[in-house]
Amino acid sequence: MKLGIPRIRWWILALVSSGILCAALVPLQVESRDVLFEIPAGTWAKRRAGVDAEILPSEIRLVLGLSDILVLKNLDEVPQIFGPTLIMPGQSFRLPFNVASEYQFECTAHASGQMKVIVAEGPTTPWSRLRFRAQHFATRVVSL
């Protein structure tokens, strides 16, 4: 019996180590890289009536390879400027990002008229993958 306990410890250690190794080496895969934001119907009317209608975050954070496609859908009755381009009512605009950087856009859906998109490097090294998965796991545990 005394000999059995260390053997179990070794097994547990091997299991944990292989889990960590897998988490560090296996590339991350996501079902969709789209990050959708909708400009709801009535945004323009509310703003015209003087109501503060901040419906999009003034800062959007994306991660290369994981969530690097910004999708903006205009459900409002009037065209909205983003990008700077005009998105017509009912139209969507899908913009993929390939370079990690900070992008400043004009955006009429914001009261400030500006929107910042921050694109961060994706976890490509074993250490960054491990850290990303650990953070993701921790977030899920906290949300339970």
Partner: peptide, 12 residues
């Protein structure tokens, strides 16, 4: 294989 630029949907 998708476009690498921003895409309008539906296009006008």
């Amino acid at each position: 294989e998708s476009y690498r630029s921003g895409v309008f949907d539906p296009p006008r």
